[in-house]
């Protein structure tokens, strides 16, 4: 396939200044996404998933700041772009799908006007008729019946599922190569969730795009994603093919996440404790206080990302001092 990945995030660091100190929300995060690939980003609340997404869209606002790293989209570094250039990338090359469609859509403008504004922001003057035609086509493509009527209505008149389809249509109207979805189904009914995810999968795989899917739901990752990025306290702690990671978790945190949902072949264990403060990053592993595998070294040495299960399929990386075989062996005792 292509030599360069569509998206290559390398060592991105983003901090927020807060009265209590510098919040290291994104701490040297690296991952990549290829065309036709769905990449899941998982982790507990507050571990920097949204901040990572914002960083790559150029949406970190003061008091936050991206201080290091590269976000290569098609080989172009988004972080080096001027404000104007990155604005052109947003919407045009990267489509963003927000968590709550009713919070994302403009409540005052008719739906058509919102499509019109997005198209005009990128293509300059466009007639209302031409933007309308494109919006109708796009709404049809995301499975909205009677698109004409929807365009003349307002967001609050829609159901949750329909509203999220409208958001997806807005994100896709300029045919972006990458779709970024930050918990796109958390605000929706379970039955609708599946429809929206199916839609996102079609739009990604069938049309050769790439999707970053932030979620809390490991089931969603297992079912939809090709690869997974597990984040903890602002860092990536494990990456790999979903099939590999779920079958043989290499990081104690991943294992903990998997075990907190009852699964065949794994002990059920609740993940105790909380995500540590991102202000004073501990001198060792940030997971040490909650980790059942922790050894002395864990509290002194910050572990680096290293290859794991080299015999498995795909690139597999883990950030842990303890050998992955040991972690997995303990996990699977009940089998």
């Amino acid at each position: 396939m292509s030599e360069t990945k569509l998206l290559d995030v390398r060592g991105v660091v983003a901090n927020y200044d807060s009265p209590r100190g510098v919040v290291k929300a994104v701490n040297a995060v690296s991952f990549s996404a290829d065309r036709k690939e769905m990449v899941g980003i998982v982790g507990e609340s507050g571990c920097g998933k949204s901040a990572t997404i914002r960083a790559l869209l150029g949406l970190i606002r003061p008091p936050g700041k991206v201080v290091e790293g590269e976000v290569l989209l098609d080989g172009q570094d988004l972080l080096k772009m001027t404000k104007k250039e990155i604005r052109q990338v947003r919407g045009d090359k990267i489509g963003f799908v927000a968590q709550n469609p009713f919070a994302a859509l403009n409540p005052i403008y008719k739906i058509h006007k919102q499509f019109h504004n997005v198209i005009r922001a990128h293509e300059g003057r466009s007639s209302s008729r031409s933007t309308r035609k494109r919006a109708v086509d796009m709404l049809t493509a995301v499975g909205i019946p009677g698109p004409e009527r929807i365009l003349d209505g307002y967001a609050h008149e829609l159901s949750g599922g329909m509203a999220q389809r409208v958001v997806i249509a807005l994100a896709l109207i300029l045919d972006p190569e990458l779709i970024v979805a930050d918990e796109p189904t958390t605000a929706l009914d379970v039955t609708i969730q599946r429809q929206i995810l199916d839609l996102l999968r079609r739009k990604t795989v069938d049309e050769g795009r790439s999707l970053l899917l932030v979620t809390h739901d490991l089931g969603v990752v297992a079912q939809y994603c090709d690869r997974v990025v597990v984040m903890y306290a602002g860092k990536v702690v494990e990456t790999g093919l979903v099939s590999e990671v779920f079958a043989r978790p290499a990081h104690p945190y991943t294992l903990g996440l998997l075990q907190s949902v009852p699964r065949r072949g794994l002990k059920v264990r609740t993940l105790g404790g909380r995500v540590p403060s991102l202000i004073d990053y501990p001198p060792g592993c940030a997971f040490a206080d909650r980790c059942v595998f922790a050894i002395d070294r864990c509290r002194e040495d910050i572990p680096e990302l290293r290859p794991a299960f080299p015999s498995g399929r795909g690139v597999r990386e883990v950030r842990c001092h303890v050998n992955e075989q040991e972690v997995f062996a303990d996990a699977a005792v009940d089998r």
């Binding site: 869209l57 949406l59 052109q88 990338v89 947003r90 919407g91 994302a104 859509l105 403009n106």
Partner: peptide, 17 residues
């Protein structure tokens, strides 16, 4: 600070808009 504004930005609207 609202999601609406973030979404508008993520769609590439100008800062004025």
């Amino acid at each position: 600070d609202s999601t609406q504004v973030e979404f508008a930005r993520a769609c590439g609207l100008s800062e004025w808009k």
